[in-house]
């Protein structure tokens, strides 16, 4: 693997080809916040809290550092007025769903985000997909997935799989950035769903 030199927050950084900006930054101790990122999982790029500013060919862009591959001579700024403003808004949008989550509150303090900016719709879920992806990529069970799209997107356990797999696993619960209770609730909801009348009710 060839070496790539780039600049993060005015520091010259040496990275390996194929690394993401986030990995390169973390490797030298530069902190970039993340919510949907997990080392064991494929990069996903959904929460966008890891947004940073990059300069390539004279143009400045905001990109998700967890996805963007390092490039030779790339100039990265992990904090800037634009970055902070974007992170603040992203936090405020997520706080409408999970207003009391400690992880979000810590970040809110850092970026001056107001948890009451938007009308509350407490679903407790920010759709980071950690549970979904962990179940698919690590456990290879696909017991939990996304349903619907757009503003109606939500996570849902698949009763047929969940009833067999989940009760003894629950590994995804601890991954949930907004509190394990959420996953537990959705799981219970899935398993409580009455089975079709043609099938016998499974014995507990």
């Amino acid at each position: 693997m060839s070496k790539i030199i780039l600049q993060i927050d005015e520091r010259k950084i040496e990275a390996r080809e194929g690394m993401t900006i986030l990995e390169a930054a973390h490797s030298v101790g530069i902190f970039i916040p993340t919510l949907c990122h997990h080392e064991k999982l494929e990069p996903y790029g959904a929460c966008r809290i890891c947004t940073v500013e990059v300069e390539t060919r004279g143009r400045t862009n905001l990109i998700a550092s967890c996805l963007y591959p390092v490039e030779q001579d790339l100039v990265v700024r992990t904090r800037s007025e634009k970055v902070d403003k974007t992170r603040k808004m992203i936090l405020e949008l997520m706080l409408a769903h999970a207003p009391d989550d400690p992880a979000l509150q810590d970040l809110a303090k850092e970026y001056g985000a107001d948890k009451n900016r938007f009308e509350k719709e407490p679903s407790f879920c920010i759709l980071c997909g950690l549970c979904v992806r962990y179940c698919a990529e690590v456990k290879k069970k696909n017991a939990v997935g996304f349903v619907s799209r757009g503003i109606r997107r939500e996570i849902s356990f698949i009763p047929e799989i969940a009833s067999k797999e989940c009760l003894n696993c629950k590994e995804c619960f601890s991954l949930c950035p907004t509190g394990a209770l959420q996953a537990a609730f959705v799981l219970t909801e899935a398993l409580a769903f009455p089975p079709p009348p043609s099938e016998p009710v499974p014995d507990e």
Binding site: M89, R149, G150
Partner: peptide
């Protein structure tokens, strides 16, 4: 239209459109 048709994966699109 976009609230229905966004895939809903990323926060700025899904939540930004919602608000």
């Amino acid at each position: 239209f976009l609230a229905d048709e966004s895939c809903g994966k990323c926060v700025p699109c899904r939540e930004g459109i919602r608000q």
